[in-house]
Design a protein around this nucleic acid. Structure first.
Lengths: 201, 201
DNA sequence: GCATTCAGGATTGTTAACAATTTCGTTTGA
DNA sequence: TCAAACGAAATTGTTAACAATCCTGAATGC
């Protein structure tokens, strides 16, 4: 129970890089995103870039308009965001419960590594890295528990973070995740769900 | 408040055709899907077909493996499906409420047309058409209430239907949707949500 | 007989060129 | 002065060719 595909899938690495930059607020809302520019930057042709942009469009980060390309999507309304938060929580609680019953030693190792990476990013106070490590940690138990629902979860989470990133108090983020991971290690479901609920807001 | 983009977006029409066939069970689980074959069929090159396949991969209908292309995804487990159902319900109830307060006469016209189309498909007892019209009707109020969340909703709904389509008792389907639409026309939120909940299972 | 190796054909991945469309500044006309 | 028409530049959409990878089945060695 442990695989982290490092393969390139339909331009996924390009996709991850762009997503990270979007989450860290590198592009303004409504700012158009040019295929050729990105292709030059990544040293590829426009094909793989288009794949990545299409992925992000499906995730809801970008929005597409025929013959005009993609631009950064407008943020969710408060109402929409709260719906998304509840959906994500429902899904992630299911995954966390499943994960807790199945996780083995190597999973604990992986989680420890991911938590360590998050702490490190918090210490460096680097917003884009914190956002990425935060997602990567949660993503681990989701992917392990239900690969089927991983992309659904990712879409919800990314859209959630985009609205307004609560990612400013780095100490708090570090503590929250430390609590979740500790509860997982103790296989204490109730505690884990409690801390998860406190974190996913 | 009424727009139905008929534009081709990243090969969306190809995408819709393939999705319909997948939902109607034309392809077996795990069956590989060949780009060139589809390109020949649609009279295009492989580019637009790849776009469509990537979309469906993001939706969760297809699953992708590097250098091997896509194949029909395996069905959700019962547990996963019930999580998806609850997420979809949560989202769609939010949209239905919003739609009910904002819908105008032209929206009612559109809904009537879509309901009529569904009834017609039920009478012809054509499974692929029933599935498509069913989705199209629900999709209308979701898209009107929250364009942001339309693709999220679509992914959940498609994945839900794939598991096992309850779409066998055509009379019941027709009645259920007639009830929902009637409640909408009367702007009776409680009744509309009640019938929706009975339908989305 | 059985596993291994090695073509070749089939399929996906990438690229560059071309077609279609949009964008934007300039000209034109009233 | 302003708005419409025009055209060049920029951008997206599509295509066919090529590269890289995977699959299949026959040949090979044990």
């Amino acid at each position: 129970m442990s695989n982290l595909s490092s393969r390139i899938e339909f331009g996924e690495n390009i996709c991850d890089v762009i997503r990270r930059e979007l989450l860290s607020g590198k592009f303004a809302f409504d700012e158009p995103i040019r295929e050729q520019k990105l292709a030059n930057r990544f040293g590829t042709s426009r094909g793989p870039v288009r794949d990545a942009l299409l992925r992000l469009t499906q995730e809801g980060v970008l929005v597409y308009e025929a013959n005009k390309g993609v631009r950064v999507n407008s943020p969710l309304s408060d109402e929409e965001r709260s719906v998304v938060v509840e959906m994500r929580l429902h899904l992630e609680k299911f995954c966390l419960e499943k994960f807790l019953t199945r996780a083995d030693a190597s999973d604990f190792d992986q989680i420890s590594i991911l938590l360590e990476r998050l702490s490190s990013a918090c210490n460096r106070a680097s917003l884009p890295e914190v956002a990425e490590c935060d997602l990567a940690l949660h993503r681990y138990w989701v992917a392990q528990a239900s690969p089927h629902l991983e992309s659904t979860w990712l879409g919800l989470s990314v859209r959630m973070i985009m609205k307004y990133s609560r990612l400013t108090n780095y100490d708090e983020i570090e503590r929250e995740h430390s609590n979740i991971v500790q509860a997982i290690m103790e296989r204490d479901l109730k505690k884990a769900l409690f801390f998860l609920e406190a974190n996913v807001i």
